[in-house]
């Protein structure tokens, strides 16, 4: 079969799987639930039902969400012709696990308890292998350049005791890997997605840096290469009031969306709003995939939609459990498709 059509089965199956994504009415029903038990009952009528049955208590809903995501990733890994497309989406989980392990390592050295419960199975590297590598300090077999970055991060901590530097090192490697894998795929739409993802992360970092009051002169190293927005423009954002950001980055789709942010209040509120806007930006970038009956970006688009669904479910359940204002929660929900 010609390469152009080898995604026929995959895309058709993803389209059918897309019908099972939760819609607005499901979100609304969860949000309207009286308490967490009622919300879980509504969730039990969806694709998450299989995992809810295994929970000891409804408070463990995060396990059900993780199980559903794990199922989707494993299923796609079986039938997607180019496995790298699924792998690239799981990279952030690998780096999440690495961060958890590095921090656990640090905590342990300081006499605290390790937090292996924060590890996720959603990464490409089995958690047992990661734990073994960190425990034995034998990093040789770790992929994604971790065999170099991991000992470097541990050494960085031991020298400077600055967790921000360690996080920066690991984030740099994560986005380098995403960029590299995106380029290796040699698919323009995947490349555009990786660039958009880097932009989103950089803008998110700019908001975070501004919140903690980092000086513009030392901020450049917190931004990653490879996005549409240059590092110079990102650094310039830090000395500009938030209302003026669109002027500096308005030439990109990401910048246009930032301009749509309403009522910029305190930085915590801005960060929460910005997270939603940046997620919606990626959704918008990937939404073009629906026009390609045989295009590979449908895989990334579906996985992203599933991630957004999981994020929405998590937001809704946490809000219902804590009795958060429903109107505010509705504003936090991400666009799924």
């Amino acid at each position: 079969m010609a390469p152009a059509e080898r995604y026929g089965y995959t895309v058709a199956r993803l389209r059918a799987m897309g019908n099972r994504l939760l819609d607005e009415s499901s979100y609304q029903r969860i949000l309207d639930s009286e308490d967490l038990d009622a919300a879980m009952k509504v969730l039990g009528e969806t694709a998450y039902a299989a995992w809810i049955a295994d929970l000891k208590s409804n408070r463990e809903f995060d396990k059900a969400i993780e199980s559903e995501l794990l199922y989707v990733y494993s299923e796609l890994q079986k039938f997607v012709p180019d496995k790298r497309l699924v792998e690239i989406c799981r990279i952030p989980y690998d780096f999440h696990n690495i961060k958890v392990l590095v921090k656990s390592h640090i905590l342990q050295k300081e006499g605290h308890e390790r937090r292996f419960d924060l590890l996720t199975k959603l990464g490409n590297i089995p958690t047992d292998d990661l734990v073994m590598a960190v425990e034995s300090e034998d990093y040789r077999l770790l992929p994604y350049g971790l065999h170099v970055v991991l000992p470097k991060s541990v050494a960085l901590w031991e020298q400077a005791k600055n967790i921000l530097e360690v996080e920066k090192e690991l984030d740099d490697q994560q986005y380098l890997m995403i960029r590299k894998m995106g380029s290796d795929c040699a698919i323009p739409s995947i490349l555009a997605w990786t660039r958009a993802k880097i932009d989103a992360e950089n803008v998110r970092n700019a908001v975070r840096l501004r919140r903690i009051g980092v000086d513009a002169s030392s901020a450049e190293s917190f931004f990653h290469d490879g996005g549409y927005i240059s590092k110079e423009s990102l650094v310039a954002l830090l000395s500009e009031p938030l209302e003026g950001w669109t002027k500096l980055v308005g030439f990109t789709d990401c910048g246009i969306l930032i301009g749509e942010l309403k009522e910029l209040g305190d930085m915590n509120h801005v960060l929460v709003e910005m997270e939603r806007v940046l997620d919606d930006y990626i959704t918008k970038v990937l939404s073009k995939a629906k026009y390609g009956a045989f295009s590979e970006d449908n895989i990334i688009q579906y996985l992203w939609a599933k991630e957004m669904e999981a994020k929405n479910v998590r937001i809704l359940l946490v809000s219902v459990a804590n009795g958060t204002n429903r109107e505010m929660v509705r504003g936090l929900l991400r666009r799924v498709q």
């Binding site: 058709a12 199956r13 389209r15 059918a16």
Partner: peptide, 18 residues
Amino acid sequence: VGIAGESGAGVMTEDPGK
């Protein structure tokens, strides 16, 4: 027919009713 069949198989894996 093969190209269409591949797509058909993809849909029917998830929704045999079609």
